[in-house]
Design a protein around this nucleic acid. Structure first.
Lengths: 249, 249
DNA sequence: CGAGCCAAGTTGTCAAGACAACTTATCAAA
DNA sequence: TTTGATAAGTTGTCTTGACAACTTGGCTCG
């Protein structure tokens, strides 16, 4: 059995939280099952019960666990959450809630990463600076529905052009290779008309209005590290997301 | 000085949290200032320091306080947050960030609350049931920009028609009169064309595309207690919001 | 006067224990 | 069989105590 390192500068409760989350991800504690009780975990790892609670507190805030008084602490289904670095989560949730047919197939083409000097654009935080950029086009049932343009800060994502983007979400890549997890984002919505190139990619008439979302994504100690512009054909795809999550509890 | 009630079924840490938040709201602890240290609060209220920490933990999750190790616990500026029950917060934040002129004047006309039987509409959770309904029209610099239609659950908002909606946000009213605080919301976005009546109110041509947002708002023990449909002229107003907020910290 | 050290104060982490409130399963009685 | 009481197990709350890590301001020394 894995043990905790008392000498490590990483707090015990943090170590235990990571350990438990690892077991959850590994399937050792499947969703819906009970994890060992607090006194049991305390005994097992030779730590105090408050420390165990501090650890499970973390996972509860991360929506990994749920406490039921008198009953136990349970692994919960990971809630659908907005993936700030892509609309993948949004698309997926649309398929699940499935207003309409749920047999839709989403296929995404990813352009390779390039390093460019961003033209002047008051709404783009990289305006006038250099940045990584890439574009993605997602199709639903063969029809283009979503065109994303992304800009990333080269300082926080060094060597991004050498990474493989295949089969992995940008969020995963940011987390695993750069240890960056999106913290907050600002987004705004408007109705816009695509330019010629965009209209062609989305396969709409040049005067067909689409939804334009601009999103600035912030990481710890790195505001505006990613900027995204998303064009969405809402006749094909409803752009949906979940807000909030109680601050208490 | 106010004291805590040891006999109350309300936990001490919760009582202390409310007390501190009251002082913050009352201006006794202005934003940016330090609140008394944990040992001092413990002494003052005759409770243990962990209990004090439990209380401040709550307020930290509510983004009211911030801890600085070695320095103290400080009141922070309330962050701009999306007001789920209205776009007021969104409009305000637009004015603050002020892309463009910041001298815009927002004026809102509120229709009186009526009780109706909601026509069949698969996307309206009140479809086929009775509900409170009202509409609001907001103008920016005199031009209509936002048309909101709201539906509220009569069971959770009894007597809503006798309440005064003047000078008070719906969120305030829900909180103060019904002790309800929005927990989460689902929203989706699409481009739509207003119907005749809507076009007239928004003062646009009937074929002018606008942003349509549908939002289902959930309260503790009351899912879908409020439904909102919002039409936004994004040529006049950018619909913006902030997402996220770290789950750790 | 300036720079660096030092001490006091503050939050971060952790322990061990206690009782309360609640859930669940078991077992007994009707 | 059904119902109710009981007991065991679990989380919720709270206390006291301790040491570590860090920040800040004042003091001393140059």
């Amino acid at each position: 059995m894995a043990a905790l390192n008392t000498q490590s500068p990483v707090p015990l409760y943090h170590q235990l939280a990571e350990l438990l989350q690892g077991r959850i991800r590994a399937g050792e504690y499947p969703a819906g099952t009970r994890i060992p009780s607090e006194p049991e975990l305390a005994r097992t790892f030779g730590i105090g019960r408050p420390t165990v609670r501090q650890a499970t507190d973390l996972l509860i805030r991360r929506r990994c666990l749920e406490r039921r008084r008198g009953s136990g602490t349970f692994v919960i289904e990971p809630p659908e959450q907005v993936d700030l670095l892509s609309l993948a989560g949004t698309l997926a949730s649309f398929e699940k809630t499935g207003r309409g047919d749920r047999s839709r197939v989403v296929h995404t083409i990813v352009q390779r990463v390039r390093r460019i000097r961003v033209p002047t654009d008051i709404e783009n935080p990289f305006s006038g600076r250099t940045a990584w950029t890439l574009a993605r086009l997602s199709r639903v049932d063969g029809t283009p529905a979503l065109l994303e343009s992304l800009w990333l800060d080269p300082e926080h994502f060094p060597g991004l052009d050498r990474m493989s983007l295949a089969g992995r979400s940008l969020s995963q890549l940011a987390h695993e290779h750069y240890h960056l997890t999106a913290e907050t984002a600002d987004q705004d919505f408007r109705v816009a008309v695509p330019d010629e190139a965009q209209a062609e990619l989305l396969e709409v008439e040049p005067d067909h209005p689409v939804l334009l979302v601009k999103r600035r994504i912030h990481f710890p100690h790195a505001r505006d590290a990613v900027f995204a512009e998303m064009l969405c054909r809402t006749d094909r795809l409803v752009f949906s997301q979940t807000l909030g999550g109680s601050l208490d509890a």
